[in-house]
């Protein structure tokens, strides 16, 4: 039996993705009708382009960051009655076909989350520097969260409604990726890793994280530990 695609919501945080977002939304909607784009106060036409392409649109009044945008999307999708929520990048590096596989595997396994792994799957056009950076980040995250993952900074995930409502993201910026993993550990959620393909393009490389961002992520994680 093919999985039901109507109860799955695809959440796409977007910041200044006006050139790419329509193509991404149309591509996702070939397979999943429910798409919500969170425009994180872009300066360009991201929100309008996404809406024309058939997405639900949430506009942050001020720029809050990718983590905050995901949390806004989670709350919207949960209210809309989603059973599954996928997190998907706006820069076109993910393939929506992978979400079908993730949904199948998640349903089969009965786990709370399916995490995409490019190191179990494929990458197209990844630079050696990026591979090293990601490997180091994965090692660091595995040590700090006590989980054992092959790829921990992958924006492609599939969550059950239960997992999305338990994981309340407080990390507004990039550290949300680690926060999700820490949350898995803290709330004893179960997860599976699913091989996915990431396609690096000139465009996605420009939008991607840099070496310096690693320091920002570490700082945010330490600061969060000191807050109540």
């Amino acid at each position: 039996m093919p999985a039901d695609t109507n109860n799955l919501w695809v959440v796409i945080p977007a910041y200044n993705e006006g050139k790419m977002i329509a193509r991404v939304v149309e591509d996702v909607r070939r397979l999943f009708p429910n798409v919500v784009v969170i425009d994180d106060a872009s300066a360009d036409q991201t929100a309008d382009a996404a809406k024309r392409a058939g997405a639900h649109v949430l506009r942050h009044p001020i720029n809050l960051g990718q983590g905050a945008a995901l949390q806004t999307g989670f709350e919207y999708a949960l209210k809309a009655g989603a059973t599954y929520i996928a997190t998907f990048d706006a820069d076109g590096q993910h393939h929506i076909e992978d979400v079908i596989l993730m949904q199948d595997r998640l349903t089969e396994s009965g786990a709370d989350l399916a995490l995409g792994s490019r190191f179990l799957g494929n990458t197209v056009g990844m630079t050696e520097g990026r591979r090293l950076l990601l490997r180091a980040a994965t090692l660091f995250t595995n040590i700090t969260t006590g989980l054992s993952l092959s790829d921990c900074h992958n924006g492609l995930r599939l969550l059950t409604a239960r997992a999305a409502s338990i994981l309340t993201l407080r990390q507004n910026r990039m550290a949300h990726a680690s926060e999700i993993l820490a949350g898995i550990r803290k709330h004893r959620l179960t997860f599976i890793e699913v091989p996915v393909t990431i396609s690096y393009t000139e465009y996605s490389r420009q939008k991607g994280q840099t070496f310096i961002d690693t320091f920002v992520i570490c700082r945010d994680l330490i600061a969060a530990k000191m807050l109540p």
Binding site: H60, L64, K79
Partner: peptide
């Protein structure tokens, strides 16, 4: 963030 999120959700736009 919580305040901005409430404003955002109150003004959601359907396709």
């Amino acid at each position: 963030t919580r305040l901005a999120r409430q404003i955002t959700l109150a003004h959601s736009e359907k396709p």
